[in-house]
Design a protein around this nucleic acid. Structure first.
Lengths: 217, 217
DNA sequence: TAGATTGTTAATCGATTAACAATC
DNA sequence: TAGATTGTTAATCGATTAACAATC
């Protein structure tokens, strides 16, 4: 029954399921059907059952899904129980924004250190995380590897830093640099947060929409 | 010939074409074939020709594409020539990071103002952009509408601010809040930058990959 | 039991890839 | 002209939706 082929499209939707379940639990809702959840999320109930069924059997026929149980299962699928460790490479504006706003610990991710080049940052522990020199990154990772590298460094050094992360054996890189990393190992998962692409997909969609509108006259 | 159905998947790839063309031009490369560009971008040449052909005929048979011409065309597709105006709603850590790092003007987007609630920010013009009170947003937009609203405000106020943006007639919202906006008008384009989803897709992919690895033994 | 709702299989839809005639 | 490479159409692949038997 378990372990069907999990589609890439499904993997990209799973975090969103988690957020919605979290919100449902906050509201005190104990159970939900695929139809109701679909309504909420703007999906079809078929798709939800399909997605979830590719990871296991989490529902009960005639009842639906228990919110708290499904949430636990989804947390497992997302790897929240794996105690992933991460290093943040680049303590500039963007890195600090992430530190300030993203609740890593709450979701089971342990940030072991921030790496930067500015002497002024050393010795500080912003949000409880130690700051180290980027030049120590390689040696530090050799002693204590990390699962995830978060790249918020300036674009010029991105490739080089990505190579250090790769060689240290990280499993994934969360890449905020405007550079497309070229890794040797295709097994390392790279997730790009590319703001340019994001904003201009928006602009492109607006542009297309307007073009269609005009052509309706 | 022109104006075929443009797939959503293509729209999401177009900004990336632009970035690669920009890099090619910087390198002084004047022409490129779909095959070479495909190699560079990790796509197939078919896909590239398909994508571009859905917007027009930009290549020359036997030659390929002129980098500078294609770049101009792609800029047009992305709406860079439309002089879109934008307002940044939320001048906190994230908003300021965006102001500091994203070259809006360079890509033809005019940021008309930043909106915040902190009295300490008023009168300042970070990166040349005036700061205004959020309470002025609605009135300001009534006088001078914006094409794009950039939402970097705290989650609590997201819905309310989105409604103000919607009623003012924005064409799109670039949403950084951890809230899924529910707009009345389905024609308004919403682009979410959801860091939670991004990081946990990464974790989920790692988790899946590891599970597959283990099951190989 | 009767009603509700799952998990799964089959049908549909959309996106990617392959193939090739047109042509620079 | 011969070689290269496009734009386009047809074939394949993958993801979404519909349908329904199984069952709580």
């Amino acid at each position: 029954m378990k372990k069907k082929k999990v589609s890439n499209a499904a993997i990209r939707r799973i975090p969103r399921y988690y957020r919605h379940l979290e919100a449902l639990e906050r509201k005190g809702i104990a159970r939900i059907s695929s139809a109701k959840l679909a309504m909420r999320m703007g999906l079809t109930s078929s798709q939800i059952r399909h997605d979830l069924a590719s990871f296991g059997e989490f529902g009960q026929m005639g009842y639906g899904y228990s919110v708290s149980e499904l949430m636990k299962e989804v947390a497992g699928i997302l790897g929240m129980d794996n105690c992933y460790t991460a290093v943040l490479v680049g303590g500039g504006c963007l890195g600090q924004t992430l530190l300030a706003n993203f609740p890593f610990a709450r979701y089971g991710i342990h940030l072991s250190a921030v790496y930067d080049i500015a002497p002024g940052m050393m010795g500080k522990t912003p949000f409880g995380v130690a700051v180290r020199y980027v030049s120590d990154l390689e040696a530090d990772l050799a002693i204590k590897p990390a699962d995830i590298g978060i790249l918020t460094a300036p674009v010029g050094s991105a490739r080089e830093l990505a190579a250090i992360l790769e060689n240290s054996g990280v499993k994934g890189i969360w890449n905020f640099t405007n550079d497309e990393l070229k890794l040797k190992d295709p097994d390392i998962v790279v997730e790009d947060v590319h703001l340019f692409d994001s904003l201009f997909s928006l602009c492109c969609a607006i542009n297309e929409r307007d073009a269609r509108k005009v052509s309706n006259y």
